[in-house]
């Protein structure tokens, strides 16, 4: 499928001042994001993930390298303001702090904010807002003030705002980090639904390995570079590399990895506890049986 985002050798440096040295946040990052895919970006704090997200949303432009959004090169010399605005319509972002991205007090007015910026006719906005609120299950809160909602519900409102704009790609920059487990699960479910049912391209930046395991593909960043790129099975299949990058693997993978050191052959990529347990049980019973047979013979 054709890529909605294509990056080639992106470099970005935060300019320093008298006290702070300039920080090279991205140091040659290349990848393609096919339309309709679900990618997770992992990396410790300061590894360059959020900088990358800001480039992809065109909040910042790279110092060097080339970036294409929907086939149009944003780093070309002849790119116009209008083209950048048009690209921004396609790629949206949901941020970490739900409080700092809601503009209007009333839920439905906030959901409408993006569409109003696009200059759509009022009736069309009304239709899209109602649909988007229904999609995220927040219809009953449409006329409520947002400050009375829980963190998870506020993130639902923010997501509805991007759905209403009919964006083709949404980046979630640690959008679950400030939520409790229930809120986190609900937001992840919505994200998955967006991807599976609406075909929206999704990128999530997260510190939670079990959330990353739900993606089709994981990019691991360290020191401004991509150090691993592959399916969750492939990436978590090398736990040493993750630990070196200051990251974790899901506990199921860690368990399987440590069992392998004991000579119990279990796959590393069974992220569901039931699947993992089944494989471990089979291997353990086999090994125990084998040991008994040996002892018996």
């Amino acid at each position: 499928m054709k890529p909605i985002i294509k990056a080639e050798n992106l470099v970005f440096t935060y300019p320093g001042d008298e006290e702070q040295k300039p920080v090279k946040a991205l140091d040659g990052v290349s990848f393609e994001i096919p339309e309709g895919s679900f990618t997770a970006i992992l990396g410790h704090n300061g590894s360059g993930k959020s900088t990358l997200a800001k480039l992809l949303c065109l909040i910042n432009l790279p110092d060097r390298g080339r970036l294409w959004i929907d086939g149009r090169e944003m780093t070309a010399d002849d790119v116009t303001e209008a083209e950048i605005l048009a690209a921004r319509r396609e790629v949206g972002m949901v941020f970490q702090n739900p409080d700092n991205q809601i503009v209007a007090t009333i839920v439905e007015e906030d959901v409408a904010f993006g569409c109003e910026n696009l200059g759509l006719p009022p009736a069309e906005i009304r239709r899209r807002v109602d649909e988007a609120l229904a999609d995220v299950g927040m219809t009953e809160f449409a006329r409520n003030p947002s400050y009375k909602l829980s963190g998870g519900q506020k993130q639902h409102v923010a997501i509805a705002g991007t759905i209403a704009m009919r964006r083709r790609c949404v980046i979630f920059d640690e959008s679950t980090a400030m939520l409790d487990p229930v809120g986190r699960r609900e937001v992840m479910d919505i994200i998955e639904k967006l991807n599976h049912e609406e075909g929206i391209t999704v990128l999530i930046i997260t510190h939670h390995m079990n959330e990353a395991a739900r993606a089709d593909r994981i990019l691991v960043m360290n020191g401004g570079r991509i150090i691993a790129d592959g399916s969750p099975s492939a990436v978590f299949g090398e736990p040493e590399r993750m630990w070196e990058a200051g990251l974790d693997v899901p506990q199921t993978t860690e368990f399987a990895y440590k069992l392998r050191e004991l000579g119990i052959k279990v796959p590393l990529d069974l992220f569901d506890p039931a699947d993992c347990a089944e494989a471990v049980a089979k291997a353990v019973l086999e090994k125990r049986g084998g040991a008994r047979r040996e002892a018996g013979s």
Binding site: G92, G114, P122
Partner: peptide, 19 residues
């Protein structure tokens, strides 16, 4: 940043849902 991401460019060309 969030407003910019949501395509806010000032009042020009903007419409309102609830007129």
């Amino acid at each position: 940043t969030a407003m910019e991401c949501r395509c806010y460019t000032g009042g020009e060309g903007r419409t309102r849902m609830n007129t």
